[in-house]
């Protein structure tokens, strides 16, 4: 039980990760998949930042006082860049969703698979 309190952050991060993961693999709507992916991504960020935290520490901006305890700056740097790269790749995802909507008229993946099967059947039909 002590470990649950001592590692509270990590367990909540896992719950967030499960929610995001479920949305990505179970939901057919592509915009929903992207939001699930964002939640998944944020859970990973949270894991890194939680690891960098030092109890009674402060933000890693030097105060000039040698007795100050700083949290670990390295995860901050990694996640800072990951967030900006994350939004750039999310934008690519949304752009692809727009193109899929334009060519298929839907963004539900089961409907798209049906449409593609129909198209395959139509193109193979006359040849056989």
């Amino acid at each position: 039980m002590t470990s649950l309190f001592a590692q509270w952050n990590y367990f909540l991060v896992i719950i967030l990760m499960m929610l995001g993961f479920y949305a990505v693999i179970a939901r057919g709507n592509m915009v929903k998949k992207m939001v699930g992916l964002n939640i998944f991504q944020t859970s990973v960020f949270m894991l890194y930042i939680s690891m960098g935290k030092v109890s009674n520490g402060t933000a890693p901006i030097l105060t000039g006082d040698s007795s100050t305890v700083y949290s670990n700056p390295l995860p901050h740097v990694l996640i800072l860049t990951a967030i900006v790269v994350g939004v750039a790749t999310t934008a690519v995802g949304y752009a692809l969703i727009i193109r899929i909507q334009e060519s298929f008229g839907t963004i539900e993946d089961d409907e798209i698979i049906e449409l593609m099967d129909d198209a395959d059947a139509a193109s193979e039909g006359p040849a056989s």
Binding site: V31, M34, V35, N38, T42, F45, I49, S50, G52, K53, V54, G57, T58, A59, P60, I61, S71, P75, H76, I79, L80, I83, V84, G86, V87, T90, A91, Y94
Partner: peptide, 23 residues
């Protein structure tokens, strides 16, 4: 709260701002 002020800054500007606009 977790002492990552730079990360919080970025998340607030990017996650709540730009990515919502794009969505």
């Amino acid at each position: 709260v977790l002492d990552a002020v730079d990360v919080a800054f970025t998340e607030a500007a990017v996650g709540a701002g730009i990515s919502t606009v794009l969505a």
